[in-house]
Design a protein around this nucleic acid. Sequence first.
DNA 1: ATAATCTTTTGAGGAAAGTCAAATAATCAG
DNA 2: CTGATTATTTGACTTTCCTCAAAAGATTAT
Lengths: 187, 187
Amino acid sequence: MKNNINMFDQFPGLGEEAKIAFEKELDSLLVDKGGLLEQEGKVCDHLYFIIEGSARSFYRKENKDITVSFSLEGEFLTAMHSFISRKPSYENIEAMEKTKVARIKYESLLKLFEKHHDLERTYRLILERYYVSLEEQLIFSKFKSARDRYLDLMDYRPKIIQRASVGQIATYLDMSIETLSRIRGKI
Amino acid sequence: MKNNINMFDQFPGLGEEAKIAFEKELDSLLVDKGGLLEQEGKVCDHLYFIIEGSARSFYRKENKDITVSFSLEGEFLTAMHSFISRKPSYENIEAMEKTKVARIKYESLLKLFEKHHDLERTYRLILERYYVSLEEQLIFSKFKSARDRYLDLMDYRPKIIQRASVGQIATYLDMSIETLSRIRGKI
DNA sequence: ATAATCTTTTGAGGAAAGTCAAATAATCAG
DNA sequence: CTGATTATTTGACTTTCCTCAAAAGATTAT
């Protein structure tokens, strides 16, 4: 449990009772590099929290894939669209290295909301963060050139540049591998 | 009040009490074409519901602007990023024609949440919808060519094509006015 | 260690969409 | 209604980034 402690640090409003009830519903999971936490075509039933390691969310289109987000230790993660809508996901989530996650089932979460309104609030806050980061990503992708998108990523999330491959970063920044490689060469 | 009735139709789980309490906190507003509901630099304090008319959310970058979304009658609307984070907004929201909105203050909403948990849930659902549509927009902007983005908009939201200008649609679809004009010419 | 595989870099050429400029069409104010 | 302003279309040219191809560099399995 020591590992999970920081999970709630981000949500000071949460009462002891709710934390305990929440933790009771968690189970934990170890995934190897390249292993899938979520797969397109299936409804996403879990909200994850990364204890150790990192993950990548991506869509597949024909042969190429499009990275939507990278997640590191201490972050919550799910295929939000499917988790929300209860429809099959278009999203895949894979571990970028050996990764340990805690996770809670959608159903369990809804049940907890009935008893613990502060948990529903916390979930709302997670959702809000998700929203904010998505919006930032959208704006940023529209305003900036390929080169600036890369420089921004270096500023904001340098760890990702260390931990993801050029190919993965390229699909995240919406440019070809070759373009990214050339940009990196000229810094 | 007759006008507002459909506001809750979208949220069947909501109890009578909560509806009444919510409506008590609403005030309504009439904005002329081009009038601003929200302005960059200010914290967004309101959640809006469009009773009649339409609105456009956009960011400004140097001289050009970037349209993030269009909203029509029956839809909720706010500068979500600022509304959530309580930081100054980068977003502007303008009426695209003479527009009637109902709105509730952020503070009022939070107070209502204390008493009416079903309202907090409804708000969560609004947030979820916001999220889903944003994600769809992000994916769609990455997967598709300029031409396909336009064809998609025609399919999904034909009313927008009728009501927004070529310039506004172009900034929404992230292409130049000229490119959009050429695409329209070739259909 | 060595071959086999996968990833990244580099080069050449091409496609998509952008910019600038001018012409045409639509809208608005008096 | 008419001139003035604003929006849209069209054309010529440029830029950005993509694709294809091949070489160089890492990584992995045997």
